[in-house]
């Protein structure tokens, strides 16, 4: 018996040691991942001279407020090779673009999934497959011909051109289809007996049941929309429609050390904060959305 106890104690010791190592490794991991953000945050509080000389401090400087104010109101003076738009304009554009893409995608996907699941009509499977195929091809692959279509439709430099083409995708439709298939047939039977039609059933049953799925999808799609890069880069050369992710890289140009790095770092913080906040604050929905759309 004594031997068993000694063995158990040894196992517990080993487990405790393993756990301590795990905590240490995780803490290092967290620090390594946060370090680039830390440096950007610190960089956004120093003046342009300090950063330009390369004396990057590891702790905050006194110029934070003015850097953020400059970025927000004018975007800085810019240089010959760089391009500035006030961050306030760019943030508004990004927020609008991300929200429109998310809402639009969810709306059209809800409707089409409802049609495919709750009706039987000729061409139902064809419609489903036409949508399903789009799962495979991200917009980047067919970017030039899609851009040409936009030119033909005179949609370049418009918010519609920025958002509508990105609403076509199969992931959201598939997710809602999966979910609608789990609604018991009895619900539909009961609704029919009460004399409710398809519109009423959608509004009073299917839609309220989908709320968590909609929330989860919204988080994923908002980030997807906010982080778009190649599409806005091609679609928009009107500075009033610039999004913050594209505008930020235009401020950098070729990465000269003479750039106004303090303003750039403040803009970078503003570009990454909204989607990061969405992920952190809506973590539960985010993980649900991520694991359910990608399977």
């Amino acid at each position: 018996m004594a031997g068993t106890e000694a063995l158990a104690a040894a196992t517990r010791r080993r487990q405790r040691r393993g756990r301590a190592l795990a905590y240490a490794a995780l803490t290092i991991g967290v620090l390594v991942f946060a370090f680039p953000i830390w440096m950007t945050l610190v960089g956004s509080t120093h003046d342009v001279g300090t950063l330009g000389r390369g004396d990057v401090p590891l702790w905050f400087g006194p110029h934070g407020a003015e850097n953020y104010a400059t970025a927000w109101t004018t975007g800085g003076a810019g240089t010959r090779n760089t391009f500035v738009v006030p961050a306030s304009t760019m943030l508004l554009n990004s927020a609008l673009m991300a929200a429109l893409i998310a809402v639009g995608k969810i709306a059209i996907s809800l409707l089409s999934a409802y049609a495919v699941v709750f009706f039987a009509f000729p061409g139902r499977m064809l419609a489903f497959w036409l949508i399903f195929i789009t799962l495979m091809l991200p917009v980047e692959v067919r970017i030039i011909p899609t851009f040409e279509v936009m030119v033909d439709l005179r949609l370049t430099n418009t918010m519609a051109g920025l958002t509508v083409p990105l609403m076509a995708s199969a992931t959201a439709t598939l997710l809602f289809r999966q979910f609608f298939l789990t609604i018991p047939d009895e619900y539909v039977e009961a609704a029919k007996m009460d004399g409710a039609g398809p519109v009423r059933f959608f509004r009073d049953v299917a839609l309220p049941l989908s709320v968590t799925n909609i929330a989860a999808l919204f988080v994923i799609l908002f980030i997807y929309g906010w982080n778009q890069y190649l599409w806005p880069l091609l679609m928009v050369n009107d500075r009033t429609l610039e999004t913050i992710v594209v505008g930020l890289t235009k401020m950098i140009g070729t990465g000269d050390s003479q750039n106004e790095w303090n303003t750039i770092m403040a803009t970078a913080m503003m570009a990454l904060l909204p989607p990061v906040l969405v992920v952190v604050l809506m973590q539960r929905w985010f993980i649900k959305g991520l694991t359910e759309t990608e399977k």
Binding site: G52, I223, G255
Partner: peptide
Amino acid sequence: TLLIWPYAVAPAVAAVLWLFLFHPQIG
């Protein structure tokens, strides 16, 4: 929570963060 947030950072913004660390003169 502390490990999942980089997912939300746009690739282009991630590039800017790393550029600021590895810039030969100012990083």
